[in-house]
Computed example of a mutant assay.
Amino acid sequence: MTRGTVAVTGAAGFIGRWVVKELLDRGYVVHGLDNLSNGSRRNVEEFSTSDQFTLEIGDICDEEVVDDLLHEDTDACIHLAAEIDVQESLDDPQSHFDANVVGTQNILEACRRTDTRLGLVGTCMVYDMVDSGDGIDESHPVKPASPYAGSKIGAENVAEGYYHGYDLPITFLRPFNTYGPYQKTGMAGGVVSIFTNRDLQGESLKIFGDGTQTRDLLYATDCARFIVDGTFSDDAVGEVFNAGTGTDISINDLAELIATDGTDIRHVEHHHPQSEVQKLRCDPSKANELLDWEPDVSLEEGVDHLRDWLRTQNRGD
């Protein structure tokens, strides 16, 4: 049974494809939009035969493209499209401002025109990472350490104005470090995917800096479920939610977990130490209390799932 229609920006990206799958599994019709700068048609090839999924190739910075995505009968929009590379934002801050702030403004205007509920997906990188040892909750101070993080909190601030000024139903969603199948395994990917792929290839695992920095690692399906639950919860409107496991692991320990016999682990000079985050641990209690959400997949299970998937990709299956 069809439950409604959802527009998803960034639908062919790593997290986007998992959100699309979660929505399709729940019976929604999904209209995706992606400019394929970070995403790939291959990520959503699984859904290509479904009559409940369409993918439009276009950019959120194009107002006409965004206007065509949303209609009066669209039940919700989940906005994931963004420039997401910290180093690239330091080299080219304008591109991140255009995509993440101007693009979000276009989405907000289209949602206002059609009175469409919006799930705005942000990032944990907006938080001040000092004194975050007990876990970062939603009241934690923000302090963006890169133009990427600055553009993401800027987009949230603009959206908050639409929530208060127009009573537009918006939920603010900040997942922590997400990993899993379909994530890139090069420098633009996440540390779990990079390490796991390098281990399978028999290459050394390179740790930037001393490796004592920690991350709270969230599996892709848990992240997608959080995003969909948050978007459709009436209790969540106007609220900010974090999603993570509540447990962090050092990069040194992560490398030891992933490395198999014979894989070398070595430390290298950090390429952007000024924007490094020393400790990232989520306090997900608000999502648990208001959304009844908690992660299902442990880090060990997630790494096993990712390793199995990467093996099929490396074989060309």
Rank of each mutant, 00 (worst) to 15 (best):
H31W: 09
H31I: 05
G32F: 02
G32I: 05
G32T: 03
G32Y: 06
L33R: 00
D34A: 03
D34M: 01
D34G: 00
N35R: 12
L36T: 02
N38A: 13
N38L: 05
G39Q: 06
G39M: 05
G39P: 00
G39C: 06
S40L: 04
S40R: 14
S40H: 10
R41S: 06
R41C: 03
R42S: 13
R42M: 01
N43M: 00
V44R: 09
E45L: 11
E45C: 04
E46H: 06
E46W: 06
F47Q: 09
F47V: 10
S48L: 07
T49M: 10
S50V: 01
D51G: 08
D51A: 12
D51S: 15
Q52P: 04
F53T: 08
F53A: 06
I57F: 03
G58N: 04
D59R: 02
D59H: 01
D59Q: 04
D59G: 03
I60L: 08
D62R: 00
D62M: 03
E64P: 02
E64K: 13
E64G: 02
V65I: 13
V66T: 02
D68H: 12
L69D: 04
H71D: 09
E72D: 14
E72I: 11
D73P: 01
T74E: 03
T74A: 05
T74R: 04
A76W: 08
A76Y: 07
C77G: 05
C77E: 01
C77W: 01
I78R: 06
I78N: 05
I78G: 06
H79K: 05
H79I: 04
L80Y: 03
A81R: 05
A81T: 04
A82F: 02
A82W: 01
E83K: 11
I84V: 15
I84N: 13
I84W: 03
I84A: 15
Q87M: 13
E88I: 11
E88C: 07
E88S: 14
E88R: 14
S89Q: 11
S89Y: 10
L90V: 13
D92K: 12
P93T: 12
P93K: 12
Q94H: 12
S95T: 14
H96W: 12
F97W: 15
N100C: 07
V101C: 04
G103M: 07
G103R: 03
G103P: 04
Q105N: 09
Q105E: 04
N106K: 07
N106P: 02
I107S: 01
L108H: 07
L108E: 02
L108I: 09
L108N: 07
E109N: 13
E109P: 00
E109M: 09
A110N: 03
A110P: 03
R113N: 13
R113P: 01
T114H: 14
T116G: 07
T116A: 11
T116F: 06
T116V: 12
T116N: 07
R117I: 07
R117G: 08
L118I: 11
L118S: 09
G119A: 12
L120E: 04
V121W: 02
V121S: 06
V121T: 05
G122W: 10
M125P: 00
V126Y: 11
Y127A: 11
M129Q: 13
V130T: 15
D131Q: 14
D131V: 05
S132C: 15
S132W: 01
S132D: 15
S132E: 08
S132V: 14
S132N: 15
G133S: 12
D134F: 04
G135D: 13
G135Q: 13
I136Q: 09
I136T: 15
D137W: 10
